[in-house]
Amino acid sequence: MDPIVVANKLTRQVNAPDGVLRILDNVDFSVIPGEAVAVTGASGSGKSTLLGLLAGFDVPTRGSVHLLGQDLGTLSEDAKAALRAGNVGFVFQSFHLLPSLTALENVVLALELAGVVQAEERAREILDEVGLAHRLRHFPRQLSGGEQQRVALARAFAVSPQILFADEPTGNLEQESGRQVADMLFNLRRDTGTALVLVTHDETLATRCDRVCRMSNGWVAPS
């Protein structure tokens, strides 16, 4: 089976006050459709950088990323955005819901950008699935952290993405909310067959994935 995302010899370096800092160093990485892969490691090990590169948010210094069969290095920023729309989902540690939109509108916006018709109906369904049917008209600031992350999950899964990138999805939540969000994440993934790249330092969460990659100083240790 062809991988849904492949990174070859991925290197990312930045200029720091003490000279060039290599955040990722010749990383090879791949995920096949439907697979759940956890990326773990200490702070500063390069987990989030890897996630950003795989999702096409950032450009590698060297190496290549193929997402959904497309070489991201050959695509313009707009082409990468178009590739993401409807195919790639995201869940961030800080939720990143649009503060001026209600829970329902946040989900509808993602569906409309993906070109889904009857977006509102689909948004209501998925918000119901994450247990927020009674919070549709609430703004992010009126929701708890756990609820905000559930809206973010609904937004991510609403478009039935082929792959979901999740960056510390429970990192900002207390234990009980974190557990609920994690359960929902894995349940939705199972139901939709979506591949998952999960960046986390939570070992318990990582073990719920099919495979765990440990990062250390810009390297990915073989799992």
């Binding site: 948010f57 178009a82 990143h96 503060p99 937004r155």
Partner: peptide, 16 residues
């Protein structure tokens, strides 16, 4: 800025 970044992540084009 954050609103623009989120919309970009969700697939909005620069023109949009």
């Amino acid at each position: 800025t954050d609103v623009a970044a989120v919309m970009r992540a969700l697939g909005a084009s620069q023109a949009t």
